[in-house]
Design a protein around this nucleic acid. Structure first.
Length: 862
RNA sequence: GCCCGGGUGGCGGAAUAGGCAGACGCAUCGGACUUAAAAUCCGAAGCCUCGUAAGGGGCGUGGGGGUUCAAGUCCCCCCCCGGGUACCA
């Protein structure tokens, strides 16, 4: 039949590859640049999923469109190739993960190339390539050797901190919240007198990379620690995951919490995405206040409602709170210890899903500093050790959780905000209102009372205003082989030194056998030669066996695409200055609080350290929706509704696949696959082919002749619609405009050549193979890829006559044709002379006439 | 619970400075071509209802109110579906 896609498509794909049609010259300055990016895939053994081409096609449309518009376009592709599946396969079959990774990449590349994307294939990046991860390690060391100076809200090199310490000690430095090191106050002399290990411990409180002992998700069967987002998956598969405290490398992303949130103002992202990030960062304003206990300990709490302190009738501390044991009385010791033990055995999930509040009394009391009342201290796991200070003042009158707890354990409840009339007596009141039972705060609303209370505690010297974040530091190390080695060495005596830059990349050692180390360490712990090092100054050392998480490589891949071969630098400065940030980024919304947050963090750090000029990585972001099975359910093997792109291409061609995925609906929405639907696109392409080239059934004559006004109107209307819809990312309606064009032109005796050429360019972002072929047959030069996008003339779109609606009492009664642009007065006159209208208003009074030019006339009569 | 996104024919979806609801496509039906079918081409079609027919009437964008000459679109209340998050003090 008509359109021979199986011949045309491979022909043009070969042409593009051989001629490097889509190579990007980043040194060009005579054209504006445009950098489009799609989230690169993890090259799994399953091959490409039908969902992959959706975002890649959307990006490709923008790339090809911008190229037609005269931009120098970069549209790259690469591989997020480290990851657990390859390692597990390696362990099962004792095949090096690089072998399966390479095979998977080759397969992915083949599949992607079969769809005809305008990708510069000479810029591929592969996160597992030592030439790439050399720079991942290099960036890690930049971050390791950086600290966040809260005085200027900026990341700085650690040497600047050391210089300050050598000059004036810790005098001007803000003490970190959870400072853990030598005596805090010292002068220049004091710093110099510290032992190297003490200095190291001091600096560790500042570095953006630090070690911590924290509970992680340990999976014995896998012999590895899992990321929180991975736990469910493996538990579902029947693996056991327990929490076990382990030494871990952390990245201090919390230092950048404010910057990450403030940066949202400068990027054009979906609000749902920035909202979610802001939620995740979870900034809240409140106060930290110290409560004295009867035993003499000071118990520090964080609250967002300092105004309610007169209603604090008890205190609650987390089971892991450092003072938990101290504050426990002898009588209560047994029951408290039992409770703490029980809490430690529960997983985080169990703790959260328990719907009944639990807790025990410590036996000791604190004094409410506001009213001097003696209030009991409880231990309960609804208070989290990791948020705030791990202790709260419980104000049941104004807090649901505290209310629930107070009711269960018969603790007193005092309202300090007057609820409105009719408010349920059996509930806490969270809303605003005048303060009551609160001494000098009485009558003030929440905001006023908060402010006054904060001033009061500050004057008393027992507290101050405080900002808190939900965001936690980033657990950066994984106990895996198949990841970037962390380039740090621990020497005897505990001194930690980074691997020298000149020794990067620190490559993964070969292993004879792939198996878990059996401990919480990665298989790297099983290697002798690689593991142990000797240093002229520090002596014997042992390499870090942790590797980086999968997010590491993807934190900066968009940078490397710009200069993938550079062996001297992460990127040449002049290239980064001209080409970053990415102009348009498309990828799944599931990465909102991981990849998209981590990348912004790294970018901001690299910016602060002077390695990047731009402050944000991705100017504009969009998420594609999911492609569901024909039954509108998620595609999965078990549901038997999986569609394989290879099959679709074999059956209908790549152009049909691309065009159909864009035609199904708005890009960002979920939509079900339809095999009938893609048939419709094939039919459309066949008709378009018939229109320009002709087929067995129909000769077509393309003539180099002037267009009739009607033809011009349709062509220019199509150009406008397609152009505006591409700019507005409404690809589905752009395609329908192309369909309308074909329906209009298909049956003309002869087709004006200029209209056919314009049509070829308009369709080329969607169906590029088709466009190339018809372009060639129309006598176009070489490739359509660089053809100029057609311009529309608004004058040519105008019509002489329009059909308008005549309404009587807002009901449509007639449709008439009037000259375009007729004034309201003229329309009124025409309407009142209309026979139908006359008949309907006969004997009635015309009360009002609404006339909207080119739309309607509404006669109100009664 | 909270935060997003969504609800329009048999189906995917169009249409918002408020102005002809259902563009375009799928499926369906009728016709042409064919020995026949497929493919292709031409045409019909939101639902209900009255009429032999031409044609007429009513109802319609999750539900209920409201604003307006006019509401899918704006305002208030509610329901359902999808995603995220979850004791963050």
């Amino acid at each position: 039949m008509a359109y021979p896609f199986s011949e045309i498509e491979p022909k043009w794909r070969r042409f593009w590859l051989e001629n490097k049609t889509f190579a990007t010259d980043t040194s060009r300055t005579d054209k504006p640049k445009y950098y489009v990016l799609s989230m690169y895939p993890y090259p799994s053994g399953q091959g490409l999923h039908i969902g992959h081409p959706e975002s890649y096609t959307a990006v490709d449309i923008l790339a090809r469109y911008k190229r037609h518009r005269g931009f120098e376009v970069l549209n790259p592709m690469g591989w997020d190739a480290f990851g657990l599946p390859a390692e597990q396969y390696a362990m099962k079959n004792n095949v090096h993960p690089s072998v399966t990774t390479k095979a998977n990449i080759d397969n992915f590349r083949r599949q992607l190339q079969a769809i005809g994307f305008s990708i510069d294939w000479d810029r591929e990046v592969d996160t597992t390539d030592p030439g790439y991860y050399k720079w991942t390690q290099w960036i890690f060391l930049q971050i390791y050797n950086a600290w966040f100076d809260s005085r200027v809200a900026k990341g700085r090199h650690i040497n600047e901190l050391i210089a300050e310490l050598e000059e004036k000690g810790s005098a001007d430095l803000p003490k970190p919240d959870h400072y853990n090191g030598p005596e805090w106050e010292f002068d220049a002399e004091g710093w110099k007198n510290l032992l190297p290990i003490e200095q190291q411990n001091f600096l560790a409180n500042f570095r953006l990379v630090y070690e911590d002992e924290i509970p992680v998700n340990w999976c014995g069967e896998l012999g590895t620690v899992l990321a929180n987002e991975e736990v469910d998956e493996w538990v579902e598969k029947g693996f056991t995951v327990e929490r076990r405290p382990t030494r871990q490398w952390m990245m201090r992303i919390t230092a950048y919490a404010d910057r990450l949130q403030a940066g949202h103002a400068n990027i054009n992202w979906p609000v749902s995405t920035t909202d979610m990030q802001a939620n995740w960062i979870g900034k809240s304003y409140g106060a930290e206040i110290t409560f004295q206990t009867e035993s003499g300990e000071e118990l520090r709490i964080f609250t967002t409602r300092p105004d309610t302190i007169f209603g604090a009738t008890f205190m609650t501390i987390a089971p892991e709170h450092p003072l938990a044991a101290t504050l426990t009385s002898e009588e209560q010791r047994e029951v408290v210890e039992a409770y703490r033990k029980e809490a430690s055995l529960k997983s985080e999930l169990d703790r959260q899903t328990g719907d009944e509040k639990t807790g025990v009394f410590t036996g000791s009391y604190a004094i409410n500093p506001a009213n001097g009342e003696r209030i009991p201290i409880w231990i309960a796991d609804y208070v989290l050790a990791s948020y705030g200070t791990g202790a709260i003042m419980a104000v049941p009158g104004q807090d649901e959780r505290d209310w629930e707890f107070a009711e269960k354990f018969n603790l007193p409840i005092v309202r300090t905000v007057l609820p409105p009339d009719g408010f349920d007596e059996g509930k806490p009141y969270i809303g605003d209102g005048p303060a009551i039972n609160s001494n000098f705060l009485n009558g003030l609303n929440i905001a006023e009372a908060k402010e006054k209370m904060i001033t009061w505690v500050e004057e008393k010297g027992i507290g101050e205003a405080k900002v808190n974040y939900k965001l936690r530091d980033w657990l950066f190390s994984r106990q895996r082989y198949w990841g970037e080695p962390i380039p740090l060495v621990r020497y005897e005596g505990g001194i930690i030194e980074p691997v020298d830059e000149s020794e990067l990349p620190l490559t993964l050692p070969e292993l004879k056998e792939f198996k878990p180390s059996g401990s919480t360490e990665s298989p790297l712990a099983l290697t002798g030669d690689w593991l142990n090092v000797e240093h002229p100054t520090f002596g014997a050392g042992r390499r870090e066996t942790n590797t980086m998480p999968q997010w590491a490589g993807s934190c900066w891949y968009y940078i490397r695409y710009l200069d993938p071969e550079n062996g001297e630098q992460m990127i040449a400065p002049e290239v980064e200055e001209r080409w970053l940030p990415v102009d348009f980024y498309i990828g799944g919304s599931e990465h909102t609080v991981t990849h998209l947050l981590y990348s912004r963090f790294w970018h901001q750090v690299l910016h602060d350290l002077g390695h990047l000029k731009s402050e944000e990585p991705f100017t504009r972001l969009l998420h594609q929706g999911m492609i569901l099975g024909e039954n509108s359910q998620k595609m999965s093997k078990s549901r038997g509704n999986v569609i394989n792109p290879d099959d679709v291409i074999a059956e209908s061609g790549a152009d049909a696949l691309r065009t159909f995925e864009m035609f199904m609906g708005p890009l960002e929405m979920d939509k079900p696959w339809s095999s009938n639907g893609i048939e419709g696109i094939r039919r459309f392409l066949n008709r378009a082919w018939g229109m320009i080239v002709g087929d067995e059934r129909r000769e077509t004559i393309v003539e180099d002749r002037p267009m009739t006004p009607d033809e011009e109107r349709i062509l220019h209307g199509t150009i406008r619609k397609v152009t505006e819809d591409i700019e507005g990312i409404r690809f589905n309606t752009a395609i329908s405009a192309l369909m309308v064009f074909v329906n209009e032109f298909l049956n003309l005796e002869t087709k004006p050549k200029v209209a056919m050429e314009s049509f070829a360019v308009l369709i080329s972002p969607f169906a590029p193979h088709f466009a190339e072929e018809v372009w060639q047959r129309l006598g176009g030069e070489e490739t359509i890829a660089n053809a100029t996008w057609p311009e529309y003339d608004p004058e040519k779109i105008k019509v002489d006559e329009v059909e308008i609606v005549l309404q009587v009492n807002s009901k449509i009664k007639d449709r008439i044709t009037v000259p375009a642009g007729a004034s309201a007065e003229e329309l009124e006159k025409i309407a009142l002379e209309n026979e139908l209208v006359k008949g309907l208003i006969e004997g009635k009074t015309v009360r009002k006439i609404v006339a909207v030019p080119d739309k309607l006339v509404n006669v109100i009569a009664g």
